[in-house]
């Protein structure tokens, strides 16, 4: 919808000929696509199409059997998840992966781990850098808490929160890292319409205000069409479509494989 007024930058992420198999199961076959800076790219496809696997390849949880990922100009075949984190890639999970025993505040604070660097001794004594940095980062975390409107639950252990709020906290934790690339795996699954609207707004705001590039997986076609600049369609591990929402709506292969089913 807003691809014309949005200022897209150069290519930030490029997947080239990615293939990934688990034993006999071919999760991804020869997938290539690009993501531009500031873009919102949606990956859609039926269950088991390989969408989550694709995100896992991008941030180093899975290592592809073939192909390469180029991120910010650096080509890499194998990388560990924490290396992806240091390069500014953050993500949320399809099945919420929060730290259940910790409060909302601590979960989001944990998202800032890489930005903190007080030494061990300072942490033991809670003096100097350790103390200042806790306070400094707490401010940033409170901004995120305000942005996501979860002030009232900041001290609650996340395990006690309803599903929709957990998803929101998980987004907060990812945002805490101030990522350049944000990967969202079904951020709105299982939400009611109101919650979906809130979440959509947060995603658009993040993209607008911080210029964060976003790759998201979503099943709700209404949401996908509204949010995304471009859509990549996967089916049985193969890419069967890549284009703007209107391109995809009119793509014969996509309609046959996917859209036709729900329409």
């Amino acid at each position: 919808m807003n691809e014309t007024d949005r200022k897209l930058g150069p290519t930030i992420l490029k997947a080239e000929n990615i293939s990934l198999a688990f034993g006999g199961v071919k999760a991804l076959t020869d997938i290539s696509f690009e993501v531009k800076e500031h873009e919102i790219l949606a990956i859609i496809g039926p269950n088991g199409a390989g969408k989550s696997s694709m995100l896992n390849v991008i941030n180093g949880v899975y290592h592809p059997n073939a192909g390469s990922v180029t991120y910010k100009g650096n080509v890499r075949q194998r990388m560990k998840p924490h290396e992806a984190a240091t390069q500014g890639i953050a993500r949320t999970f399809q099945n919420i992966a929060l730290f259940k025993g910790m409060s909302v505040l601590d979960n989001i604070m944990t998202g800032r781990t890489l930005k903190m660097n007080a030494g061990f001794l300072a942490q033991c004594l809670y003096v100097g850098r350790a103390r200042n940095e806790e306070i400094e980062h707490r401010k940033k975390v409170e901004e995120i808490i305000d942005f996501l409107q979860i002030q009232s639950i900041r001290k609650t252990p996340v395990g006690r929160l309803p599903y929709g709020l957990q998803k929101r906290v998980e987004l907060g934790r990812a945002l805490a890292a101030e990522p350049t690339l944000l990967l969202l795996d079904e951020p709105m699954a299982g939400m009611n319409i109101e919650e979906k609207e809130d979440m959509s707004r947060f995603i658009l705001d993040v993209n607008d205000e911080f210029g964060t590039t976003i790759v998201l997986i979503e099943h709700d076609m209404g949401v996908v069409m509204d949010l995304s600049d471009r859509i990549v369609v996967l089916d049985y591990g193969k890419k069967i479509g890549d284009g703007t929402p209107s391109d995809i709506r009119n793509n014969k292969a996509v309609i046959d494989a996917y859209l036709g089913v729900s329409d």
Binding site: K100, C124, A130
Partner: peptide, 27 residues
Amino acid sequence: NLVRGRIGRAWMATRDMDVAAEIIGIR
């Protein structure tokens, strides 16, 4: 002091969900 700071959160994150902890950058 340790458990209320960065290192304590890294421990608890590893305890609660090690994959997510690693994705945040906790080795």
